[in-house]
């Protein structure tokens, strides 16, 4: 299964982390063939939010939600199941100062739904 590991944290603490430590884990995961994609993000001050309502474009500064912990980067990984995904997420270095949200990828290409989602 594919999981997206979203790395959150206070920007100052994330900024103080050693990039080489993060890159080492990234290399290891890629060497094992379990990393589909991974990137670190520029600080949230550089973010722009885009919306389209009734055909009109609205562009605003900053992120959608105001929180102390910001999205700082992501790993798209390949894992056998949630337990393996948790083990991988636990080794992402910023997990020690922030947190990692582990989300399963919805196989949208295989199971495309028509119309509204029924829950």
């Amino acid at each position: 299964m594919k999981y997206l590991c979203l790395v959150y944290g206070e920007e100052q603490k994330i900024g103080e982390m050693d990039d080489h430590k993060c890159l080492a884990w990234d290399h290891e995961l890629r060497a094992r063939g379990q990393c589909v994609a991974s990137e670190a993000l520029e600080p949230v001050a550089t973010a722009t939010t885009v919306r389209v309502r009734n055909g009109r474009l609205s562009v605003t500064d900053g992120p959608f939600a105001e929180t102390k912990e910001q999205l700082a980067g992501f790993y798209l990984i390949e894992a056998r199941d949630l337990n393996e995904a948790i083990q991988i997420a636990a080794k992402i270095p910023p997990a020690e100062v922030g947190c990692v949200e582990v989300r399963p990828i919805r196989p949208i290409r295989e199971h495309a739904r028509a119309g509204a989602r029924l829950e």
């Binding site: 299964m1 999981y3 894992a79 056998r80 199941d81 949630l82 337990n83 995904a85 399963p104 919805r106």
Partner: peptide, 10 residues
């Protein structure tokens, strides 16, 4: 089911 929680003893 959707998050892939495995059916196993840890």
């Amino acid at each position: 089911r959707d998050a892939g929680i495995p059916y196993e003893v840890p």
